[in-house]
Amino acid sequence: MFEDLRAAILAGGIPIGSRLPSEEKLARSYGVSRPIIREAMRSLQTLGLTRSRSGSGSFVISDSPPPDLAYGAVTARDLIEARPHVEIPAAGWAALRRSEAQLARLMALCDRMEQEVASLTWVGLDSDFHALIAEAAQNALFARIVVESREALQKQSELVNLMADRRMASNIEHRRIAEAIGSGSEAAAQEAMRAHLDRVAAAVTGITARNRKNG
């Protein structure tokens, strides 16, 4: 459904200025739930193809997506460049400083993500997972950066899961990070987080490349 709408916009089948059908109509047309439609509509906005107008619906604003993804004031490049400098050391410190209660919460988040079927709920849990690691690192600056980046991280997570189908892989990677933190090994926790961020960056780079090809 998302790819149908995206392809139609890029091909000019839904011209610039057109208003997309309502969530209710799209849900009926594609036989899917409204939360799935909502996710797709948000991702079209993140790709720079549509814009939502309060009370009026979503309108096509471009049939040539920008070469660089942006999540509000934060770009995909910003996140790719900054996250390793914050979240890799934070994972290492969390392995050394986390409390038993924090570890239990981290493992519980892994359980919930693996069982969750609703995409938007999963995205929220994903953001909780990364925020908890920064909290467990007991570094106020790391925690503040992650919290203040939360909205951009959620938009990126939602887009990557929709366009690169990474939820299952992310669940595995999150479990490895949590287990490494639980082991108390700074090096293992850092390596697990590095591997996760590398794979997310690769997925985002792939999406960006598709944007440039279609632009």
Score class of each variant (00 low, 15 high):
142 F>S: 08
159 L>Y: 00
205 T>V: 13
181 I>W: 01
149 S>H: 05
210 R>V: 15
157 S>Q: 04
186 E>H: 07
214 N>Y: 01
156 Q>E: 10
145 I>R: 07
183 S>R: 10
142 F>Y: 07
167 R>N: 08
162 L>A: 04
166 R>Y: 07
211 N>Q: 11
187 A>V: 15
182 G>W: 04
158 E>Y: 00
183 S>C: 11
191 E>D: 12
146 V>H: 01
148 E>Q: 10
160 V>G: 01
152 A>W: 01
146 V>K: 05
145 I>D: 00
191 E>K: 11
163 M>P: 07
151 E>Y: 02
182 G>P: 07
139 N>P: 11
148 E>S: 12
210 R>D: 15
145 I>E: 01
163 M>L: 13
168 M>T: 14
189 A>T: 10
194 R>C: 08
199 R>M: 14
184 G>I: 10
172 I>K: 06
177 I>P: 07
211 N>V: 11
188 A>P: 11
148 E>P: 14
169 A>P: 15
214 N>K: 06
147 V>A: 05
197 L>P: 12
168 M>I: 13
154 Q>A: 12
214 N>M: 12
210 R>P: 09
185 S>I: 15
151 E>I: 14
191 E>A: 15
214 N>P: 08
182 G>M: 08
201 A>D: 06
150 R>D: 06
171 N>I: 12
206 G>T: 08
192 A>T: 10
169 A>H: 07
156 Q>I: 07
199 R>W: 03
197 L>E: 02
209 A>F: 03
171 N>E: 01
152 A>H: 02
165 D>W: 04
205 T>F: 01
142 F>E: 04
198 D>S: 13
159 L>C: 01
212 R>E: 06
169 A>C: 05
213 K>S: 14
189 A>W: 05
148 E>H: 09
146 V>Q: 01
192 A>M: 06
176 R>M: 08
147 V>G: 01
175 R>D: 02
202 A>T: 13
155 K>A: 06
193 M>T: 13
142 F>D: 07
148 E>C: 03
147 V>E: 03
140 A>Y: 00
163 M>E: 11
150 R>I: 05
203 A>R: 04
144 R>L: 04
192 A>P: 14
156 Q>K: 03
211 N>M: 14
190 Q>Y: 02
154 Q>M: 13
154 Q>H: 00
187 A>T: 15
139 N>F: 00
152 A>I: 05
150 R>A: 02
207 I>D: 04
194 R>P: 13
171 N>D: 07
195 A>W: 03
191 E>Y: 01
159 L>F: 00
164 A>H: 03
168 M>H: 09
139 N>W: 00
144 R>D: 09
210 R>N: 14
151 E>H: 06
212 R>K: 13
196 H>S: 09
206 G>K: 04
183 S>P: 15
175 R>A: 13
164 A>P: 09
182 G>H: 07
204 V>F: 02
173 E>C: 05
187 A>C: 07
177 I>R: 00
197 L>Q: 04
210 R>F: 09
181 I>F: 01
187 A>R: 11
146 V>G: 00
157 S>M: 02
